[in-house]
Each structure stands twice: as structure tokens, then as C-alpha cells.
């Protein structure tokens, strides 16, 4: 048993070594490809990012910080964070339920459900926003009835949360479905035969198995919820200090020729994007190593 393990490990070691020697002698073609990729990245990713920060700090750090400390900006930040705090847990709950159902059970209409989950990706966010206006607007299907109850959805916070939830709806589920399908059911069945209840099986077996995928989905979902513009723009009504999220606020400031303010808020958004990227690569580096070794 032992000697076979060693030979197997030995064989694995020689392979990457060979690959490394191949990689150590880059050909002119490799250089060309790297140059193309690097210049593309520089032009479309790094340069704009630098421009955002440069514009924000064009008049120094003071005005930039002052723009962020502005009441309306702070209210936009609060609204954005609140939207994220509602939309992400909703979509985590939904994503877990949907991926559990899809990965663990056979039922008719399964492929239809899968394509339905993808719908928010294939529909333009503006159309999504319009759907909510049609449903909940003053002349919409449900709007008048809800207005009678004193509940305003469109041009108010509930509409923004709804639109954001809709747009970020597939992110957690999309991340979990293939993961859960690949992992199969055996560990859960083992837990059940060992006497675990449904909840114990979920908490002690399924959740640890999918935790990295779930965390990844949550981060993507949060990032997208923060940055959503189109759908939110349609339902928000742009009431300053009340229904303005950060991306909408950037637009208003920019339209008002307040470039420092616009780019200061934009750099906050860019920073959250960078943080997402960092968290994402941390998970990618850490997740598989933890689950394999």
C-alpha cells in the first residue's frame, strides 16, 4: 500500500517539472500574446481605474473627502448598503433552495426552472426596471392596491430593493448548482444513515461542502447589487437624499458638473470592486486547497 502511494506521488511530481521547463523558455509568439493581453488590460482596465482616482483627487484629498462626507452622498451610501443587506440574504436563501432542489432531486420542469433562474441575466436591466414600474407603478397592476395600504413601491426604497434583488437573483444559484451537482449526494446519504436529521445534514455536511462556492456567490452578488444602475435607475425616481443609490448619485453629480464629487463617489465604488476582486482571488487560492488537501 505504502510503496504504491509513493510511486504514485513520484509520478505526479515529475510531470509538473516537465511542464515548468517548457514554460521557462518563452517563444516570440508567447511574448507577442502577453504583450497584446497586457496592453488590452492596460487600456481597458487599468487606465480607466487610474483616471477615476486621478479625477477624484484632482483638487487634492480634501475636496474628495468633503464630497463623500456630503449629506446626500452619505444617504446614497446608506441606501446602497441597505439594499445590499436585504438583496444578498434574500438571494442566498433563494439560491440555496433552488440549487438544492435542482442538484438533489429529479422533477418535471427542472430545465425550465434552470432557464428561469437565468432570466435576469438575459433581460436588459432597464426592461427589468420597467416591469416593476408596470407592476407597482401608480397605474400598474398592483400599484393602486398597495398605495391604498399606504405602501409606495416605485420611486421608493422597496422598488430599489426589488429591482436589485431581481437583477442579482441568479448569482448565488448559478454558483452553487454546478458545484452541488458535481459533489453528488453520497455524503448526505451517509449522514442520514448515521442518524442525522435533515437540518443537521444541511448544516454539518452540505454547508461545509459548499461554503467556498457560497461565499464566492455572496461576494459576486454583493458587488453586483452595489453597482446596479439600469434597473434601479428606472424605479428610483432619483429623489436626492432619499432614493439615490451610489451609482445614481454619481450620475447626478456628474450631470451637475461636480466632477470631483462624481469621481470621489465613483472611486468608492471602484474600491469595493477591487476589494471584491481581492476577496475572490483569496477564495480561489484558499478554497480548493482546503477542500482537496
Amino acid at each position: 500500500m505504502g510503496s504504491q502511494g509513493r510511486t504514485r506521488r513520484g509520478a505526479v511530481v515529475t510531470d509538473p517539472e516537465r511542464r515548468e521547463t517548457l514554460a521557462r523558455t518563452p517563444s516570440p509568439v508567447a511574448w507577442l500574446l502577453v504583450a497584446i493581453a497586457a496592453s488590452f488590460l492596460g487600456l481597458f482596465l487599468v487606465l480607466p481605474l487610474v483616471a477615476v482616482f486621478a479625477q477624484a483627487l484632482a483638487k487634492g484629498l480634501g475636496p474628495a473627502l468633503a464630497a463623500i462626507a456630503d449629506d446626500e452622498t452619505l444617504s446614497a451610501i446608506r441606501l446602497t448598503l441597505m439594499t445590499v443587506a436585504i438583496a444578498v440574504p434574500l438571494n442566498v436563501g433563494f439560491g440555496l433552495a433552488a440549487s438544492w432542489a435542482i442538484a438533489k432531486f429529479e422533477f418535471c420542469g427542472k430545465s425550465f426552472l434552470v432557464s428561469l433562474i437565468d432570466l435576469p441575466f438575459s433581460v436588459s436591466p432597464v426592461v427589468a426596471g420597467l416591469v416593476f414600474v408596470l407592476l407597482f407603478g401608480a397605474r400598474g397592476l398592483l400599484g393602486p392596491a398597495l398605495a391604498d395600504q399606504g405602501l409606495q413601491v416605485v420611486f421608493a426604497v422597496p422598488g430599489i430593493v426589488l429591482a436589485t434583488t431581481f437583477v442579482t437573483f441568479p448569482l448565488v444559484a448559478r454558483e452553487l448548482i454546478p458545484l452541488m451537482q458535481a459533489q453528488g449526494n453520497e455524503e448526505e446519504e451517509a449522514a442520514i444513515t448515521l442518524g442525522a436529521s435533515g437540518w443537521q445534514t444541511f448544516r454539518r455536511v452540505t454547508l461545509p461542502k459548499i461554503r467556498w462556492g457560497l461565499l464566492y456567490g455572496v461576494i459576486l452578488c454583493a458587488a453586483r447589487a452595489m453597482g446596479e444602475f439600469g434597473a434601479v435607475s428606472v424605479v428610483s425616481g432619483h429623489v436626492r437624499g432619499e432614493t439615490n443609490t451610489m451609482p445614481l448619485h454619481v450620475e447626478i453629480l456628474y450631470d451637475g458638473y461636480d466632477f470631483v464629487g462624481a469621481f470621489a463617489v465613483a472611486s468608492l465604488l471602484a474600491l469595493t470592486a477591487l476589494a471584491t476582486l481581492g476577496a475572490k482571488s483569496w477564495i480561489e487560492a484558499r478554497g480548493p486547497r482546503r477542500s482537496v488537501a
Binding site: 453520497e186 455524503e187 446519504e189 451517509a190 444513515t193 448515521l194 461542502k209 461554503r211 482546503r290 477542500s291
Partner: peptide, 21 residues
């Protein structure tokens, strides 16, 4: 009866060990 009430031990073909534990 549910598997947990039967008092059976089951050993799976591919072991089904909890990989995270």
C-alpha cells in the same frame, strides 16, 4: 421507517467520507 431509525450502518462504494472533516 427513515434510515436514521433503522439502526443500520452503511458503507458506500466510494466511501462518501465527509471531505471537509
Amino acid at each position: 421507517e427513515a434510515p436514521r431509525d433503522r439502526g443500520v450502518g452503511f458503507v458506500f462504494q466510494h466511501y462518501a467520507l465527509f471531505r471537509h472533516a
